[in-house]
Simulated assay, not measured.
Amino acid sequence: MTLGFVLWAIWGFILGGALQPILSVFPLFVIMYGVFNALGEMGPGVSTFLLAAAVGKAGGSIGTEVFTSIQNSFASTYRGQQAVFLVG
């Protein structure tokens, strides 16, 4: 994972430093950007992104259920939305 992050940083500096010439050949930019993203997911890094995606989806599902219940427990829609905003 460390190797991936080091290469990711080096590749990012190369991509950022030579951005103008690279952008003039758009397919080159697409390929270099693809390699840049792949380096971030090298080794255990892929688990980091998968874990973040899973936690985000779980949080969205749980939050929808919890906040809907909170919102519906108030008499007016305005007060329910206000409570959800304050809790969030």
Rank of each mutant, 00 (worst) to 15 (best):
M1H: 09
A83H: 00
N37G: 11
G43T: 04
G43N: 11
K57I: 12
G43A: 10
M42S: 11
F5N: 02
S76R: 03
V30F: 09
G4Y: 00
L19V: 14
P27Y: 03
F85D: 05
I70A: 09
G60I: 07
A75Q: 12
S47M: 10
L23G: 09
A75I: 09
S73E: 03
I62R: 14
Y33P: 04
I62E: 12
G34R: 15
L50Y: 09
I62K: 14
Y78N: 11
A58Q: 09
T64Y: 12
G80E: 03
G63H: 10
A75G: 02
G16V: 01
R79E: 14
F49G: 11
I14Y: 15
I31K: 07
E65N: 13
I70E: 08
L51P: 00
S47K: 13
A58V: 12
L28D: 03
L3C: 06
I70Y: 06
G63Q: 11
M42C: 12
W8Q: 02
I10C: 10
N72Q: 11
I62M: 11
T64K: 15
G43E: 07
S69V: 09
T64V: 10
M32E: 04
E65K: 14
M32I: 13
G45I: 01
N72A: 08
G59S: 13
W8E: 02
S47Y: 14
G88A: 12
V6K: 05
Q81T: 05
F26A: 05
Y78I: 13
S76V: 04
V84N: 03
S69A: 10
A83N: 01
G56D: 06
G59C: 09
V55L: 14
L51I: 13
L7M: 08
Y33N: 08
S69E: 14
V6D: 02
G40P: 06
S73G: 03
P44G: 12
G88P: 02
R79L: 15
Q71D: 07
L28Y: 06
G56H: 09
F5P: 03
G4W: 00
V87Y: 05
Y78C: 01
K57P: 04
S47F: 14
L7V: 05
G4R: 00
V25G: 01
A75P: 01
N37W: 06
G88V: 00
V87G: 03
A83V: 00
V30C: 13
G17I: 01
G34K: 12
L86Y: 05
P21I: 06
L15Q: 02
L3F: 10
T77Q: 13
A53S: 14
Q82W: 04
G60A: 08
F5M: 11
Q81F: 02
G4E: 00
V84Q: 04
T77P: 00
S24Q: 12
G88S: 13
A18I: 04
G4F: 04
G88R: 04
S73T: 04
G16S: 09
P21D: 06
A75N: 07
Q71S: 07
F67S: 13
G43Q: 07
G40H: 05
S76N: 04
G59W: 11
F74E: 07
V6N: 01
I22Q: 03
F29D: 06
F74Q: 06
S47I: 12
F49Q: 14
L86G: 00
A58F: 10
W8K: 02
G17H: 05
F85T: 15
P44S: 08
F26K: 15
S47C: 06
S76K: 08
L3V: 10
W11E: 00
V30L: 15
T64L: 13
